[in-house]
Each structure stands twice: as structure tokens, then as C-alpha cells.
Amino acid sequence: MMSIFHRPGRTATGLLTLALIALLLILDARQSMPINPHAAPSPVALGSGQAPAGAHCTQR
């Protein structure tokens, strides 16, 4: 039995996946607030003594 539907090849599937990931990144960038560098913690804040807050593991 022959199928009337053509299955996309490996290249088309890869390009479609990359296009969907790019679309998700663009939508996320458009909806998110820009980072305030004065209110953000240091990118290398390991061992800074600041306690984590707001995460599910910090709730008691």
C-alpha cells in the first residue's frame, strides 16, 4: 500500500526544529522584562552569603 503523504527528510526536520526553537526564543525575548543590572545579583555570586529566596526548596 502506497502512502500519499511525503515524509520530510532529515534536513527538513532539522531546519523545522531550528526554526521552532528560534521562534520560541524570539517570543520569549519579546515578552520578558529586560534585566536591571543594578538590581541583579553578581553573575559569579557563589559563596556570597546571600540566602536564596523564592524557590520551592526555600519554603518551610
Rank of each mutant, 00 (worst) to 15 (best):
M1L: 11
M1N: 09
M1Q: 10
M1D: 10
M2G: 06
S3E: 07
F5M: 15
F5P: 01
F5V: 15
F5C: 09
F5Y: 11
H6S: 12
H6K: 15
H6W: 03
H6C: 06
H6G: 08
R7G: 03
P8I: 00
P8R: 02
G9F: 01
G9Q: 03
T11P: 02
T11C: 00
T11E: 13
T11Q: 09
A12K: 14
A12H: 05
A12P: 02
T13G: 02
T13C: 05
T13R: 15
T13F: 01
G14H: 08
G14L: 14
G14I: 06
L15P: 01
L15A: 00
L15Y: 01
L16D: 15
L16C: 14
L16S: 15
L16Y: 06
T17V: 08
L18N: 11
A19F: 05
L20W: 02
I21N: 06
A22M: 12
A22W: 01
L23W: 03
L23H: 02
L23D: 03
L23Y: 03
L23C: 13
L25S: 13
I26S: 11
I26F: 10
I26Q: 07
L27A: 15
L27P: 02
D28E: 12
D28Q: 11
D28S: 10
D28A: 13
D28G: 12
D28N: 09
D28K: 10
A29K: 12
A29V: 02
R30I: 05
R30F: 04
R30L: 14
Q31G: 05
Q31T: 14
Q31S: 13
Q31R: 15
Q31Y: 04
S32K: 13
S32P: 01
S32F: 01
M33S: 14
M33C: 06
P34N: 04
P34V: 01
I35R: 13
P37W: 01
P37I: 01
A39G: 07
A39N: 14
A39C: 07
A39E: 14
A40E: 15
A40H: 10
P41Q: 04
S42P: 11
S42G: 10
P43C: 00
P43Q: 00
P43F: 00
P43I: 00
P43G: 00
P43S: 00
V44G: 03
A45I: 03
L46I: 09
L46W: 12
L46G: 08
G47L: 06
G47V: 01
S48G: 14
S48R: 13
G49F: 02
G49Y: 02
Q50A: 11
Q50S: 07
Q50F: 06
Q50H: 14
P52W: 09
P52D: 13
P52L: 09
P52T: 04
P52A: 07
G54L: 05
H56V: 12
H56E: 13
H56I: 10
H56F: 11
H56S: 12
C57M: 00
C57E: 10
C57Y: 09
C57T: 02
C57A: 00
T58V: 10
T58Q: 12
T58S: 10
T58K: 00
Q59L: 10
Q59D: 12
Q59P: 03
R60G: 09
